[in-house]
Each structure stands twice: as C-alpha cells, then as structure tokens.
Design a protein around this nucleic acid. Structure first.
Lengths: 214, 214
DNA sequence: ACGGCAATTATTCAATCGTATAATAACAGC
DNA sequence: GCTGTTATTATACGATTGAATAATTGCCGT
C-alpha cells in the first residue's frame, strides 16, 4: 500500500508568510481569536499545520506578525487618504473621513482590531506594536494640524498642537469604535459628518469651515 | 484508607455566584481571556471546577455574567459621580472627570474591558450587553447635557443634543482607551484636563467655562 | 438528634490544543 | 537527467480544555 502523500508546490518565503498571515486574519475575523488555531489557519492557507513552525518560531510570533499587518493596513489607508498634492484643509478633511468610512469602518477590521487589543495588556510584544502605531498616528495628525493652521494663518504652539492631536485622535478612535460596533445605529455618512462638525468645534473653527469645500 | 475529602462550607446562591464572577475577573485581569479556564477560576474562588456548571449553564454564560459585572461597574461609578444634588454644570464636569480618573482609568479595568470587546463581534449575547450599556451611557450624557444647557439658557434641539452626546461619548471613550493603554504617556490630571478643555470646545462653550468653578 | 435534600467534590471522558520529530517530495544547480 | 537541499507533509505526544457523571458531605427542617 503505497503511501499517497498529498501533492504540493513550493512557494517563496515572502508569499508563504503572507498567505499564512492572511489565513490567520480570516480565521480571527470569522471566529475570533479562539478560532485561530494552527490547524484551522493551516487549512485555510492550504497547507498543513506543521509548516507554521517552519516560518515562525511559534504561534505567538505569527499572531504578532498578523497584528502588525492589521495596524499597518489601517494607518496606511488613512494616511494615504491625506494625499500630499492637496491643500492642507482638504488633506485634513480627507484624513478624518477616511478614518470613518469603509474600509476602515468595517466589521472585519473591527473584529481583527478587537481580537488583538486584549493582548496588549498581557504581552509586551503587542504593547510595543500598539505604542509604535499610536505614536505614528499621533504624529501624522500633528503634521496635518500644523500645515492646516499654518495655511490658515493661525498661530499654534507645539504644546497646543499636541493637545489638539490627542483629543482629535481620541475623538476619531471613539467614533470609529462605537460607530463600527453599532453600525446599524448610524448610516454611512452620519459618522463622518459628525466627526467633521466635532473637529471644527474641537479646533475652535467656524462651523462648516472644514466640511465645506469653498 | 479513608478517602480524605476536602471539607467545604455551603454558601448562598447569590454570594457563590458573585465569588465565581469575581474570580473570573481576577483570572482575566491577570492572564487575559486565555487564563480564564474553569479550573483556574474555580481554584481562585476556592472551589472545585465542577461547581461552575452547577451555577451556570456553561463557561460562556459565566463569562457573560462577568462582562455584565464589568460594564455595570464602569457606568455605575461614572454615573454615581454625577451626583444629583449639584448644579448641572458641576454634574457634567464630575461625570467627565470620573470617566478619566481612577478607578475607571485603571489597568485592570482596561484589561477586563479589552478581554471582552472581541466577543461582541462573535457572540450575540455579548453584543446585546454592549448595546444595552452603550445606549444607557448615551442617555445619561444626553440628560446631563439637557440640564446643563437648560440652566445656561441656551436652546438645544433634541437632534443637536444627541449629536453632542455621541461626540462627547466618543471623545471620552477614546481618551479613556488610549490614556489607559499608554498610561505612562500621561500623568493623572492631564487626561481629565484635556477632556474638559475638549468638551468645552466641542459644545462651543467659552474656554474655562466648564473647568473653572465660578 | 436525625433524615433527606442539594450543594460540593472527585473523577472520568473525549476533544483539541501547540509543538516536536521523522519521512518525503519538489525544485534548483549542475 | 541526476543529485542534494529543504520546503512540506505526516504522525505522534503530552498537556489542557470544557463538560458529564457519580460519590459524598454540609446543613436545614422537623
């Protein structure tokens, strides 16, 4: 009885790692962190479970890589929305809107974010990843604010800029979290509109200054 | 060889359930959700594992009860801070401060909150608990705002009140989350001060109107 | 004081987890 | 085309999990 071994094809390290990470995210999005077992992930990636330990030291390290991938994706789309070839006001507006419309406000994204956030408290590696992303996000907001107030001709001390950035970031985070958790309570533009009006108030701008194009 | 069975004492259903729930929270706070196994919980509660299924249908149901306990605790302390025997402005101020100082901004509270948030996406029972608490929180904020603007003599339409409440809630949530996650980045009063200034701006009040007593 | 109810313990079970190791097949270099 | 390297599969192992069942002991009513 010849052993009928499964046929397979070799892949480059880069794409195999990516496949495994994407499969991890699929599993988490579907069943939560408890659904992300090495077997389920391997099955979803079309390989066998043992392969995971060939590319990662262990399951934990793969989860960290997956967390990095999620956070990178979130910040990348938000930052990409604030295109450099536009006026500071438009960039700030686009940045806010991008954070409160799909694909950032998306059930799957929230599931992934939520699955990882609890690890921050327990595992220092996850804490480092979070810290890194939070500071990067904060700095991006600060740069947008500086450019905006500069164009507007309003003075803005570094300390005040930082305070604005912290509050603005908190507002966006909160709206994103609750808005995505209870997506049925808000329609798509309601969230972004509320954010724009709130940011105007937060920065002590005149109503409509940020939302209206002219 | 006489079987040396462990001696024990009976307890009322109420306190046994509470003991088990508190033990559950202790386990989660210490090791995350993965540390909340029936055996560890039972050990921490000073009973044996089997007893859990005598008071709860299963582990899931006990986790739900624990989640309810956490959320109740958080909203209760915040609402209790807005004492009824004070002026509307003071109540609003106290409410905001209470949400951004210990024991609400506390590493343990965050750990518990974070451990449960991912279940909202997966388990409808957890979604219902979250929804219930979110709406209760929102309504509390709306009532505080109505009383405040009424005393101030400013008109406030129900729609505007709701929009304010949503934004204010998001701001508090975001500050609480990031501030507690990165507690070392902020000192204790910085968070509450930032919140007060931001809420003043959010509600289009004059700077210092909410923070200063007079 | 004692009998019976049920709260609690003790033990077992099947399932599943992450990891380790050995066998094998795919592919590159020559 | 052959050969050596190694990516991949296959299998096994020990630990741990949530749940189910049976045995026992604490305690209340009488």
């Amino acid at each position: 009885m010849a052993s009928a071994r499964r046929s397979y094809s070799r892949a480059s390290e880069a794409e195999r790692r990516e496949d495994l990470i994407l499969a991890t995210l699929d599993c988490i999005a579907e069943d939560g962190i408890k659904g992300a077992t090495v077997r389920q992930i391997a099955a979803r990636a079309g390989v066998t479970a043992g392969l995971i330990r060939h590319y990662f030291t262990g399951k934990d390290q793969m989860l960290q890589a997956a967390y990095r991938a999620v956070m990178d994706g979130m910040t990348r789309t938000a930052i990409a929305a604030a295109r450099e070839d536009e006026a500071p006001k438009a960039r700030l507006r686009r940045f806010i809107i991008a954070n409160l419309t799909p694909p950032v406000t998306d059930s799957r994204t929230l599931s992934l974010w939520a699955a990882f956030i609890s690890h921050i408290q327990t595992d220092p590696s996850f804490a480092a990843i979070h810290r890194e992303n939070y500071l990067a996000f904060l700095q991006e907001v600060e740069m947008l604010l500086l450019a905006f107030f500069d164009e507007r001709g309003t003075a803005l001390s570094p300390k005040q800029c930082r305070r604005f950035a912290i509050s603005l970031n908190a507002l966006i985070d909160g709206l994103w979290l609750e808005g995505t958790l209870a997506a049925d309570l808000f329609d798509e533009h309601e969230l972004a509109d509320a954010a724009l009006a709130s940011v105007e108030a937060l920065l002590r701008l005149t109503p409509g200054e940020l939302a209206l194009e002219k």
